[in-house]
Amino acid sequence: MKILAKSPWVVHFNCNSCNGCDIEFLACLTPLYDLERFGVLHIGNPKHADILVVTGSVNHRNARVLENVYLQIPDPKVVVAIGVCTSTGGIFADCYNILGGIDKVIPVDVFIPGCPPRPEAIIDGLVQSLEKLEAKRAGKKVAPARKPTFTFRPPEEAEAPVTPSPAGSAGHGGKE
């Protein structure tokens, strides 16, 4: 029986986010999307949690805090990274204090692309992470997630040639 997948408790950590992703994540808990029907609880305490939901990029200050929160979650646990900031640094990538994606600090199991992702995408990502959670409980080796490599563009823009981003940054939702 899939015990863990039936009651995933989530702790949400805002690393360095613009709050766009946080608002979309909280929208998942509202009556319209109602994550609780899958047994998901927004628990707010790493010691009770199974899933760590991170928004925003990581910087020199909060890298230690992020790692600390991650280590406090009892095994088995998964990390879900919401938004492009968590994978590359997003629009903050060029800032002097930004380290980049959160995978520089903790292993990530699911990346959810978007800036910010829609609540449907977030729910989809959480459901995908549940499979990994069960695999981890069964003692299987789970490979870290691949980063999203493409993003949606409006058709007229997609026609235009893509300008290469400056070295050292992937840009806003850009290629890694």
Binding site: I3, P31, E36, P74
Partner: peptide, 28 residues
């Protein structure tokens, strides 16, 4: 409570699932 708030809400047995889940976790 979920219905009063206009949500669908978890299954009735959710507290039982929660307890089983907690027993499957690492004892810290």
């Amino acid at each position: 409570t979920a219905r009063i708030q206009g949500r669908i809400g978890p299954p009735i047995l959710q507290p039982v699932y929660d307890v089983f889940k907690l027993f499957a976790k690492e004892p810290l």
